[in-house]
Design a protein around this nucleic acid. Structure first.
Lengths: 157, 157
DNA sequence: ATAAAAATCACCCTTAAGTATGAATGAGGA
DNA sequence: TCCTCATTCATACTTAAGGGTGATTTTTAT
């Protein structure tokens, strides 16, 4: 019972002990500097202890428990929207060339620029230019964004 | 040995040190106010305030927050297709942690590491480590591959 | 209580990706 | 024919991503 209390409040007890030690230190310093008034020191220490306790009590009483919200997503099946294929319209709007679309598809398959270059028997620099024009036309900045957008528009598989 | 003690009781020691600083401050103020004279009530009030604050701080630091679990059901639209959903099995095989999955999802949305870090209030380095572990677990080398694979396994939307 | 796993962050280094600019070539339309 | 555009490639630069190692802290499970 007592042991359990001790283990559970280990830190608080340690705090109390260190406080005691500090008061002793203060006492020692008091002697050193010959600035006296025992009653005053003790009084102050007492006040400090009491109000620390008050603070702790206040905090424990007033603090609202942290609420962890667990969101359970309930899946609801819904028909895949937008009908069969909004492909062609969107694709033409973007005005991508054959090569650019090819590069885009390979990007979506997770290939690096070098791998795309090897696959298409092109230079790495060429792939870079294609991808830059591609990003520009699709109004994105990264291949990951391009792939995401392209998939959402259904212009690639 | 000593080092271990220090690391283990770091918090308590920090409390002790800050308390010591506080007491020194009070000592100094005491000298000041004694010279000014008859500011006793103010002094006491000051101490009371400070130690109440200290107590509150201590309590908030030391007390483990009570956690209330609130379950909210949230309906989410899901595409009907995607076949028989090999989700959970595959997902568990990969043994991804919550964070890793979160990072993966944000990668799939085309965010850069920096943007993911900002979104999750984490360091860029943290995102890097998460993504490295992720790539390792998924047996891929690039974010684009990871996203592609994850989508094929239906472990992300 | 203690071990294990998850999560966080740092530092350093290498490689890939992205940016800017310029230029040559070839096919097809005006 | 002349012009446009797609395609190809280069050089040089900046930034982001990937990779390795180690440390601390928090959470979880035993």
């Amino acid at each position: 019972m007592v042991l359990k209390f001790i283990t559970r409040n280990k830190q608080t007890i340690l705090y109390g002990i260190s406080l005691a030690l500090l008061l002793f230190l203060l006492k020692w310093l008091e002697l050193r500097f010959i600035i006296i008034d025992h009653a005053f020191e003790i009084y102050i220490g007492f006040i400090a202890l009491i109000f620390t306790g008050l603070g702790i009590w206040l905090a424990l009483k007033l603090s609202r428990p942290r609420i962890e919200t667990v969101v359970i997503e309930k899946e609801v099946m819904v028909e895949k929207s937008a009908g069969p294929v909004p492909d062609l319209n969107e694709l033409e709007k973007l005005n991508l060339s054959k090569r650019e679309l090819e590069v885009l598809q390979l990007m979506a398959d997770g290939l690096s620029n070098q791998e795309i270059a090897d696959r298409l028997f092109l230079s790495l620099n060429t792939i870079k230019t294609h991808s830059l024009r591609l990003f520009s036309k699709m109004d994105v900045e990264r291949r990951t964004q391009a792939v995401d957008k392209a998939k959402k528009l259904n212009i690639i598989r």
